[in-house]
């Protein structure tokens, strides 16, 4: 089963997001991550869903999403070249001894320390799923207290190749 990143444009209206989530639960499709926000057009919200499934399940998901009246566009970015990012906040236990090592790790991942207390620091990081997961791995030995993740957002690339 492959992970698919699906980008959905939907009317920015009462209940529209419910329809999308309801469709996934009613038909037993899974959601790995979901993020929602407005797009370049105020009247359209962009929903990015990452879902795992066999090809025919994903095909059904896309067809069913397209059937929703409020959905204006569905793209399975998996078949396109696309950029994706996720933002996470991690609160890690930190003592006087471990603080500087944590700051180094944070720097290596080009993330920021946004809160600090005698017993913890909170790191903000953005990046691809692999990068974010790698950082969490590195932080685990220190004792992770809390994590908040936005879920992935994604856009199709204009040009092929990394910029």
């Amino acid at each position: 089963m492959k992970k698919h990143t699906i980008s959905i444009s939907v009317e920015n209206k009462f209940g529209a997001l419910n329809r999308i989530i309801g469709l996934f639960s009613a038909r037993g499709y899974n959601i790995d991550s979901i993020s929602v926000g407005t797009s370049e057009d105020d009247s359209v919200a962009r929903v990015t869903i990452v879902s795992k499934g066999d090809d025919d399940v994903i095909e059904q998901i896309i067809k069913q999403l397209n059937k929703l009246i409020d959905v204006t566009k569905v793209v399975d970015l998996t078949y396109e070249s696309f950029v994706e990012r996720e933002l996470i906040l991690v609160k890690v236990s930190a003592s006087r001894n471990s603080r500087s090592e944590l700051m180094q790790i944070s720097e290596i991942f080009r993330s920021k320390i946004i809160d600090i207390s005698p017993r913890s620091i909170t790191i903000e990081a953005t990046g691809s799923e692999q990068k974010v997961n790698a950082m969490i791995k590195m932080l685990e030995p220190f004792g992770i207290k809390e994590i908040a993740r936005t879920g992935r957002v994604a856009l199709k690339r204009e040009f092929e190749g990394e910029v």
């Binding site: 009462f14 209940g15 419910n18 309801g22 409020d70």
Partner: peptide, 16 residues
Amino acid sequence: IIGITRSITKHNFLVK
């Protein structure tokens, strides 16, 4: 009723 019928209608509307 909008929530209840969401998965059994082709579409539904609440008129605000």
